[in-house]
Structures are given as C-alpha cells and as structure tokens.
Amino acid sequence: MTQLFAPWTTTRSRTVRRAHFWIPGERVSLGDKTYQRGPMYVEWEAPEQVTRQWPIVLMHGGGFQGTEWFDTPDGRPGWAQRLVEAGYAVLVVDRPGHGRSPYHVDVMGTMGPPFSYEGGRHIYFAGDDPRHTQWPFASDEESAIDEFIAGYGPLPADLEASETMDADRTAELLDRIGPAILITHSASGPDGWLIADRRPHLVKAIAAIEPMGPPFAEIPNIGPMRWGPTAAPLSFEPPAASPDDLRNATPGTYALPALDDLPILIVTAEASEFAAASPPTAAFLNACGASAELMDLADHDVRGNGHGLIYEMNSDDALVPVLEWLRLRTEAAREDVVL
C-alpha cells in the first residue's frame, strides 16, 4: 500500500505575504508571428513586518530552478523561508529557460545536454571524500534520487547568451524593486558579477555560494568562461579588446569599477571539489579592484558539506555565518526598519 504524503499535516503554519510576477523578455518575429524570448518568473515572499532594509534575490544553480531555495530534499524549510523568518523580503527567480521560465529553441537557441543521474551524483553526492557527511539521503535511495533529479532540465547551449539573459532580466527586476542583495549558487555565480556590472547602484551585496569557475575555465556540459569569471563580457576599464587580451594580461591591468566597494562574499564547503574554483575567482575579482572575501564554512564549525550545502542536513547552520556577514556588511550603523 502506498504511504500517503501530506506535508501540510506536519508543517507549522506561518503568516507571510507572497505572490509572483514576470519580467518579460524581448518580442521576436518569426515569419508572420510574434513571440517572447526568455521571460523570467519571480516569486516573492515577505514576513508580516519586513525588518531588513534590502530585499534578497535568490538565484539558482545550473539546470535547476528556484525551488532549490524553498525546501530541502528531506522536507525541511530551505534558505528562502529562513531568510523570511530573519526579516527579509525574498525574491526567488527561475532564470530564463529554467523551471517556470519557458524555453523554446526557435526563440532562445539550441538546448544543451539533458541533466543525467550520473551528473547529479557526481556534483552533489558523497563520493570518495569521507568528510562529506551532510547529504540528506542515501545514494541508493532511488525514489529520493528520482525526485531530486526531476527538477533539473537542460541549460541553453550558448552560455554567454544564457548569462546575458539572466543579467538583463535581473537588472530589470532591480529597476522594478529597487536596491537588493543577491545570493547566487553555482552556475548563477557569474550572473552576480554581471548584474552588479549593469546596476552597480542597485546591488548592495553579493553572497556567492560556490560560484561557477575558476576564471577562463571550460565547464563540462555547460561552456567556456571566456571573460574570466563570466562567459559574457564585463565592463572592464580600460576596455578589454578580447578574451585573450584579458587572459594574458598581468593581474591589475584591468579594473571592474562597478565592483569597487561592493561587499562580496564567496562561500565554500569543506568537502566540495567545486570549492577549489572559489579562491582563483576571488583573486581575479580583487585584482580588478573588488574586495571579495572568502568564507570556508569549516572555519565556522559548519562541517561535512558538499556543493549542495544550501539544502544539506545542516543547511540552517550553513546560513548562520552568511546572515552574520550580511548584517555586518549591509546594516552597520543603521536603525532597524519596519516596512
């Protein structure tokens, strides 16, 4: 007999405000018809009283969707709810072509490869590293694996075009809502640098959770990071004529003025092989005039995590030092506000 699954019977009630809206894409003409290219779905939630000055925009990783911020694979509240409980208005996006943001090859270009079970196991599950102890279900728990992989889809084959759409739509989101904090994960990490480059006055801080990298890497099944920490071009000063000029330049030759004085945190996990990409990413940004800080969660006694730290068994603990960093970098010398 199938066991009934009724999570609403065990989840405590809470009072929040929530809704959704869309950031539309461009109109494109194909033959005698007009279509929309790359809209972005935005779902927001806020406590009855918002006590934090800046809202937080949560951006999901590669191939996944905004649901990765809502709940963990073992049914606990995710970072989105915890941030609302901490007093923030929270906006969760489905990046263009992911989740509820529709994709069609005729208007958005070729899809990349589908997301495989093997890829999911390699990226997230405990492998040969005995330190990785926080993944929330066993590797042979097939029904749990099925449900986890179900949320994944293909990325656009053109990484530069995908990042450009992400950054353009999120810049429009900030134009609509005003200044905000960005929290990115994995493949959306480069989006954070691109969005700040487009709207430096509207990005108040970036917390990048194991951002995709390192600079100039060829990311398997995703694409090349041609412009250092991004696949899409940034506004370097002086302008970089080509990716090769940027790659071959002495560190410090090029600056990124939009990142000057912007609080940036790059978070890494103890047992994630993807953590190795973060120090060179921070070094590149800092050589361009940024002030990116590295946070190894193990230094805060948050241990046993892999790349999926935002929904592993100690995800609440992993959020604590990030929240403290945000408080120190964005709320210093400020009275609490109620909105």
Score class of each variant (00 low, 15 high):
Ile209Ser: 12
Ile209Phe: 08
Ile209Thr: 02
Ile209Ala: 09
Pro211His: 01
Met212Leu: 15
Gly213Asp: 05
Gly213Tyr: 01
Gly213Leu: 04
Pro214Leu: 05
Pro215Leu: 01
Pro215Asp: 07
Pro215Glu: 10
Phe216Ile: 07
Ala217Ile: 05
Glu218Phe: 06
Glu218Pro: 00
Glu218Ser: 14
Glu218Arg: 14
Ile219Asp: 11
Ile219Lys: 09
Ile219Gly: 11
Pro220Tyr: 12
Pro220Val: 13
Asn221Lys: 10
Ile222His: 00
Ile222Tyr: 02
Gly223Ser: 08
Gly223Phe: 08
Pro224Phe: 01
Pro224Met: 06
Met225Thr: 04
Met225Cys: 04
Met225Pro: 01
Arg226Trp: 01
Arg226Ser: 15
Arg226Glu: 12
Arg226Gly: 07
Arg226Asp: 14
Arg226Val: 01
Gly228Pro: 02
Gly228Cys: 02
Gly228Asp: 05
Gly228His: 02
Gly228Val: 03
Pro229His: 01
Thr230Leu: 06
Thr230Ala: 08
Ala231Lys: 02
Ala231Ser: 15
Ala232Asn: 06
Ala232Gln: 06
Pro233Asn: 09
Leu234Phe: 03
Leu234Met: 13
Leu234Arg: 02
Ser235Gly: 09
Ser235Trp: 00
Ser235Thr: 14
Phe236Gly: 06
Glu237Leu: 10
Glu237Gly: 00
Glu237Cys: 04
Pro238Phe: 05
Pro238Val: 09
Ala240Arg: 07
Ala240Ile: 11
Ala241Gln: 13
Ser242Lys: 13
Asp244Cys: 00
Asp244Gln: 15
Asp244Pro: 00
Asp245Arg: 12
Asp245Phe: 03
Leu246Trp: 08
Leu246Ser: 04
Leu246Gln: 10
Arg247Gly: 00
Arg247Asn: 00
Asn248Gly: 00
Asn248Trp: 12
Asn248Phe: 10
Asn248Arg: 15
